[in-house]
Design a protein around this nucleic acid. Structure first.
Lengths: 217, 217
DNA sequence: GCCGCCATGTTAGCGCTCGTCACATGAGCT
DNA sequence: AGCTCATGTGACGAGCGCTAACATGGCGGC
């Protein structure tokens, strides 16, 4: 157990000991405050108390740090979605609604992660971990969609991939356009959460899934 | 008629004569190639053949140029949507489908505009024109939604604002996640256009609007 | 217990950008 | 013709990304 720097501020000498983690934390703070593109490598270094060149020992370049943050974001995202889905309990319908709420909650509560994940303009194959983490998050949606679709009579079942993509798109659209507290966007007569919930409800109705996840309302 | 530089390349002296327009064109080219954040003020100046300080005579700063591009984008967008809607002919249903296709076509064919409009992280009140142009584009969707809703029996009519927001969100989500040719995103078994069309269809079905815009399929 | 390796830090520096100055030019009005 | 002011230029300071050469000291081998 090489206990490196669990305690908040051990007097550090020449070697920092935990710089990589600290840089990620600093990046998260900066992205939260100034957006994914306002964030600068140099400032993260300053915030961690090291020279501007130090970060390059841990990340190839600025984008690599961003990609790392994004990958962590997708993992946290996948976790949050999995937890919200909770294996489809008590039934697929309500669990699915929790999923939508969790999506928006994540975008709202973790703007730094969300920024890095979707607004930084990163290609998904900036790193393998990034793509893997993103896929894992999507799989939760995909799985939930399958569970809901299973409630339909076989001849009326849409492709679960398509359904998952629709839900993801609607969620992302709502989050991107109205879900942030940045003030710069359009004021609405309803919250983003209500908007998304209503949208999902109507969509499910369109598939033949009634209000509570039961076929044909 | 102060004919300032309508012809492609009149020998210019000290004064450019049409720098503002040229800068916007240069910006569009750069954004198309390198994304909204790769775009640089200095390079636009270079491209227009002027010194790096010249653009500041026409735009307060880099963001002002971006906002101008975005505003022009929203105007072109509103125009394209209006044209696609074509006053709801031949009927609201097919016209609405054209609207969705036009949305995606715009995102696909004018990536520079779309980038400036949605991915540059601009606040909508960066300039009054920007907000106005954005509102005008949204009004087209709103108007189309109202026309479709009017087909429903009064007691089943959802708020048209909500419906417009749903469509906008779904469209934007599809465009942002899968609609660009940037390659970095996820490969799909269907095109973004088909995905959106199917999604809108299901959504409308959920509202009680059948396949061809007729109530209750 | 000493020594040397090399991961991780430092300083220095290049090339670039944004944005601001004071200054130059010349188009158009009087 | 002469003035004026919008529009262009050149030089500059500050900040950033990234590289190169050098410094430090933690750790394993002897």
């Amino acid at each position: 157990m090489s206990w490196k720097r669990n305690n908040p501020d051990p007097p550090r000498g020449y070697h920092h000991g935990n710089l990589k983690e600290e840089l990620v934390r600093a990046a998260l703070g900066l992205i939260r405050e100034k957006g994914a593109n306002g964030f600068t490598f140099a400032e993260a270094a300053r915030m961690a108390g090291v020279s501007p060149a130090a970060p390059y020992r841990h990340f190839r370049d600025r984008d690599a740090l961003l990609a790392d943050v994004a990958a962590r974001g997708f993992e946290a995202f996948a976790l949050a979605l999995t937890k919200a889905w909770d294996q489809g309990r008590p039934d697929a319908g309500v669990a699915f609604n929790r999923l939508g709420a969790a999506y928006l909650a994540f975008a709202h509560d973790e703007p730094a992660y969300y920024s890095a994940m979707f607004e930084a303009g990163l290609s998904l194959d900036a790193s393998p971990e990034l793509r893997l983490a993103a896929d894992r998050a999507f799989q939760v949606l995909r799985h939930a969609s399958e569970a809901l679709i299973a409630l339909l009579p076989p001849e009326k079942r849409p492709p679960s991939l398509m359904m998952a993509l629709h839900i993801w798109s609607l969620s992302h659209g709502v989050a991107a356009l109205f879900g942030r507290a940045d003030g710069g966007r359009r004021p609405l007569p309803m919250s983003a959460g209500e908007l998304l919930e209503a949208g999902v409800l109507i969509y499910l109705q369109g598939l033949g899934l009634g209000p509570r996840g039961k076929p044909a309302g």
